[in-house]
Each structure stands twice: as structure tokens, then as C-alpha cells.
Design a protein around this nucleic acid. Structure first.
Lengths: 245, 245
DNA sequence: CGAGTTTTTGAGGTGAGTCAACGCGTGTGG
DNA sequence: CCACACGCGTTGACTCACCTCAAAAACTCG
């Protein structure tokens, strides 16, 4: 954690102080969150888990968990969007994924969180003490099954992302991202609470490349871009770009 | 599917017909598996799961599951090493991970396998009908907990890999891979049943880059390379390379 | 030994990164 | 109400890490 001394990329420096003021401002700039607007059909039945829940709210940009912190709680997003990330010692950052209403955060087999998570826009969560969750899992197949199902889904998403990171071109990456978000928000108009920096860190690219790629897609008439506001014009074309060359 | 018509990379063509003869030959070439040699402390208690298990053996290079096939079974590796991969329509391939004794394969929330898996060297597995597994999960917290724990571990591994794929340089990737394998095999001498092609597809690189990087590491006196046989000479140096720049 | 792989090495190309400048919106304070 | 600062996004020029293409070397196995 000496951090940010080195030759760090820009990616680096940005994240070295994310939980601070800048992150907040950054997010506010590009508001109108997607999740609150579309509550989604997330299953609401969390069974006995409800009995040990505490509701907590986070302001935009606030850290929910930090890398390396003791993993005392399990979280379930009630509303808003959360980004989960990991960093290298020199500050390079990779966003692992975005969490929406209904998703769980903090399912780790270790005693510490290995990834950090920050609220992208205002977020409310249910928080469960880990010890109690483990007890519940041990006696309630329902809870265990719920968590297992979620974990498997995340695993699949993680695999998609590995394929993306390892084998897709910049254009394919950006297209895949847009399609993914569109599916989540189930509209062809995305008002993302996600900055270019977030996209870059999610897709394993730089801000500049993301920006250039979006410009290209706009020039090809596939999407419309107006700063944080991106609209999908030709969804089919975008989907083609996402999965092939 | 239609595959291998296009401009596919070499990566492409290799995998378009992996489940065939070539894959087999490829793997045999670089034998002396690591897993059978080091049985590992994998927990053996799988509880009620044992009652529905069938033992199945696979020859080196044999497909265990194929992408898109109906997901009828859950597998648990008893011995050997399995590689799990995903491909793009045009054939580009990304290896999602390697499974060793004790690991589960086929935990998907869908009805089809989204990744393929092939045996790297001879493999034996326990196979469980999915329907029955689901019934067990619904009534046995022990089984659910076991699977949940495994899923979480895989999730963590997947996150590590995302960080690697998205943000690490070729040298860091290769070093990380070697360190990971060394930890698995708990020795400083690796006799990998893994070809350069596998490494490349795992690390999001090309065969040539992997080869060149290994040569570099050898020239720096960090590792010893004798074809498939790689030995770690200066582990500390390798670990430094793996996590920083 | 010879066919078929896998690995290595070389030479050259390129997609994405780096560095740098500028535009644009928003918020702030005089 | 405007000048200014600040953060984000865009664009351009240039560089370089890694890819591509190609050929030779090293190994395996029939």
C-alpha cells in the first residue's frame, strides 16, 4: 500500500483516492441511475436471512467494503449500483463487476474482503453479520440454496468477463459492455452512472481507448453518445460486434 | 459451431477441433501430471453426495463437458487435471481455469454448460446427476454449504484472473501463472501437463509471447526451462514479478 | 529414421497505450 | 451574472508491447 509512487498509469492514480471527494463528484456528474429507475424482477424472498438484516444507506462514491478489511458482513443490494474492484500494489485497478438490486456482496471464503466495493450513485443495502449468515447456511437449505444460486450466476458472469478481457478487441469489449448494460436496464437508452474511467477499468482498457471506441460506434450510427448519456441505435449491429469480429 | 472458416488466429484453429485426436497427442507430449503426483489435502467428505456418485474415467484430451450441451451432471475431480474453457463464435479461446482433485465442475444456474472442459492427462471424476444434486441441496445444508464454499473459492480465483487478464503485462501474467501452479503443486519444480498453447489461452496471450517470456525469465535466472519441464529457481523474484511491475 | 507436433526465434506490423492539449459542462465565489 | 476552476470527455501525435507471419529447431512416437 505504499502505492502511487511508481510509474503508475493514469488508471493508477485515479483509484488511489477513490473513496474520497473526487469519486463522489465524478459520479454525481453523470447521474440518473439505471437501477432505481428499473427496479427489476429481483426475487425478494430471502427467507430467514431477513431476520438478521440491517438496512444501511451509502452516499454516492462511498466505500461499502475495502480490500483487505476483515470480512464481517454479507451485503445484499436493495437499490442502486455498486462497483466491485481489485487493485494491484502499484495502483492499477480492475473492476470485477457491477452489482444491482438483489445481488449479494461479500461472499468470500476468507476472513478478509479481497475486493473493494463502492457505491455508484446512492445505494441502500441489507447487511447481515457473517457469523450469523454462516449459522443460517448451516441449518437452512433455503438460504444456502439462494446464496449458491447467486454464486453460480456470478461465476458465469465472471467467466464471460474473462473471455472478454482475454480475447476480445477494444470494439468488442465496449459493444459487449453496452449490450450487457442494456440487458440489465432492459431499455435501449442507457443513462449510466458509470464514467469512462469505470468502463476502462471494467474492460481492461484506457479511458482514451474507450472514448475513441464510443466515437467510432457513434460515427457508424450504432449508438448515440451525448456525454454520459448513451443510446443504442442499432442493437442488432451492437450485438454482432459484441460476440464476433 | 460453423467455426474455423474465418480469419481465426492460431488460437482459433487449435481449439476448433480440440476434442479430437490432436488435443490428445498434444497433451501426451508433455506429460507427468502434477496432480496425481501430489494428491493434495482436498477434503474427502462429500456427505450424502457420495450416495449418488458414479465414478468415470477420461483419457487424456477427452472432453468431459462441451459448451452448449445440456447440463445433466455435476462433476467432482477425483484425480488429474481438467481445463475449463470458453470460445467465441470465431474460435478464439479463453481458458477459464484449471481444476484439480476436489474441485467441482458443472456448477451452472442454466440448463446448458456454458464452458467446455477437457481432461489434461488421465482424469477420474465422480459424476452426480444434476436433478438429484438439486434435491440434495434443497434438504442437506451440508451439501449446500460444501458447494457454496467451493463456488466462493472459484469466484475469488476468477476475480484474480480478471485482474490478471485486464491489467497485467505479459511478464506479470506468466510469472503469476507459474506462482499459482507452484502453490498448487507445492513444489518449486513444475512438471506441467500444460502446453504453451494452454498457457497462452489461459493468460490471454499468444503462444509466441509465452515462449519469449519464458525465455526471458530463464535468461534472468528466475526459472529453468526444459520444454514442458519448468523449475523455479528464484521464487521470491518470481513472486515479485507476479504482483507488481 | 521420418512424420507430425510443439517450441523457439526472427522480422515486421498494429492495436491499444502514453503523453499532451483542448473543449465542455457545472459549481463557486466575487 | 460572469470569471474561473475543476472534473470529465474528446482528440491528436507518437510509441511500444504484443501480435502476426514465417521458418527453423527440438522433441515424441510409430
Amino acid at each position: 500500500m505504499t502505492a502511487l509512487a511508481q510509474t503508475g498509469t493514469r488508471t493508477t492514480k485515479r483509484f488511489a483516492f477513490v473513496p474520497g471527494v473526487h469519486g463522489k463528484a465524478a459520479v454525481k456528474a453523470a447521474m440518473v441511475a439505471v437501477a432505481p429507475a428499473t427496479p427489476k424482477p429481483a426475487e425478494t424472498d430471502i427467507g430467514p436471512l431477513a431476520t438478521i438484516a440491517t438496512v444501511v444507506a451509502f452516499a454516492s462514491g462511498a466505500p461499502i467494503v475495502r480490500e483487505g478489511e476483515p470480512a464481517d458482513h454479507l451485503f445484499r443490494i436493495a437499490s442502486g449500483v455498486v462497483k466491485v474492484y481489485r487493485t494491484l500494489p502499484d495502483g492499477r485497478c480492475q473492476i470485477i463487476g457491477f452489482l444491482f438490486a438483489g445481488d449479494f456482496l461479500g461472499m468470500v471464503p476468507e476472513d478478509v474482503y479481497l475486493s473493494g466495493a463502492v457505491a455508484i450513485g446512492p445505494v441502500t443495502v441489507s447487511r447481515f453479520p457473517r457469523k450469523q449468515v454462516e449459522q443460517l447456511v448451516a441449518v437452512s437449505p433455503l438460504v444456502a440454496r439462494l446464496l449458491l444460486r447467486r454464486a453460480c450466476s456470478e461465476l458465469i458472469a465472471a467467466q464471460d468477463q474473462m473471455l472478454l478481457l482475454g480475447r476480445k478487441s477494444a470494439t468488442e469489449k465496449v459493444a459487449s459492455f453496452l449490450v450487457m448494460i442494456a440487458r440489465r436496464g432492459l431499455g435501449d437508452v442507457l443513462d449510466l452512472p458509470v464514467t469512462r474511467a469505470d468502463m476502462a477499468d471494467y474492460l481492461g482498457l484506457t479511458i482514451e481507448t474507450v472514448s475513441r471506441t464510443l466515437t467510432l460506434l457513434r460515427e457508424d450510427g450504432v449508438i448515440g453518445v451525448k456525454r454520459a448519456h448513451i443510446s443504442i441505435v442499432r442493437r442488432g449491429a451492437l450485438e454482432d460486434l459484441a460476440d464476433a469480429a
